[in-house]
């Protein structure tokens, strides 16, 4: 999806710059492809240790306190993803009753595109659930998230 949106954007760039044509749908397609790519990888990014966090204090704590922190952190992640999931349905329902479509001539109902959010929320939830599980088994669920992966 990510590569597809790169290709579409490239096509749009060349089209606009060299051929004087502009595809009004290109912008929207790229946006929604990336939004989907984002929500579908939000859990995977966690498992691969990409989410930003601060280890400064935690790594100085004793094992028991550290596990408590991991437990709380997992619980916070679980709560947030659960709320994200729950909160997405009124909006999906509203898009559905309103019948709002995309702005360009893609003609896709927005409620379909918005489904990315509950799906992403489930994947996010599963990730934090596994963190919780690993904490309870006595492992460090957030190990391996090195700062080198942070791209800023």
């Amino acid at each position: 999806m990510f590569l597809a949106s790169t290709v579409i954007m490239l096509n749009e760039a060349f089209g606009r710059a060299l051929l004087n044509t502009s595809y009004f749908w290109a912008e929207e397609t790229v946006r929604y492809l990336m939004v989907w790519a984002f929500f579908l990888t939000v859990g995977a990014a966690g498992s691969a240790g990409y989410h930003i966090r601060t280890e400064l204090l935690v790594e100085r704590l004793g094992k028991r306190w550290r596990q408590l922190c991991h437990f709380l952190s997992s619980a916070i992640g679980l709560s947030f993803s659960a709320i994200l999931f729950y909160a997405s349905f009124p909006q999906i329902y509203r898009y559905y009753t309103m019948g709002m479509m995309t702005e360009s001539n893609l003609d896709i109902p927005l409620w379909v595109l918005f489904l990315a959010m509950p799906i992403g929320a489930v994947l996010y939830f599963i990730y934090y659930f596994s963190c919780l599980w690993r904490t309870l088994k006595g492992e460090d669920p957030f190990a391996g998230g090195t700062p080198i992966k942070i791209d800023f």
Binding site: P90, Q91, R94, Y95, T97, M98, G99, M100, M101, T102, E103, L110
Partner: peptide
């Protein structure tokens, strides 16, 4: 516009073209 009806917003004054998406 999309949030009208969820209780988050009650009124909007958009350019009329936007309502064509609905």
């Amino acid at each position: 516009l999309a949030a009208l009806g969820t209780g988050a917003v009650h009124m909007v004054w958009p350019v009329s073209v936007r309502i064509e998406t609905i």
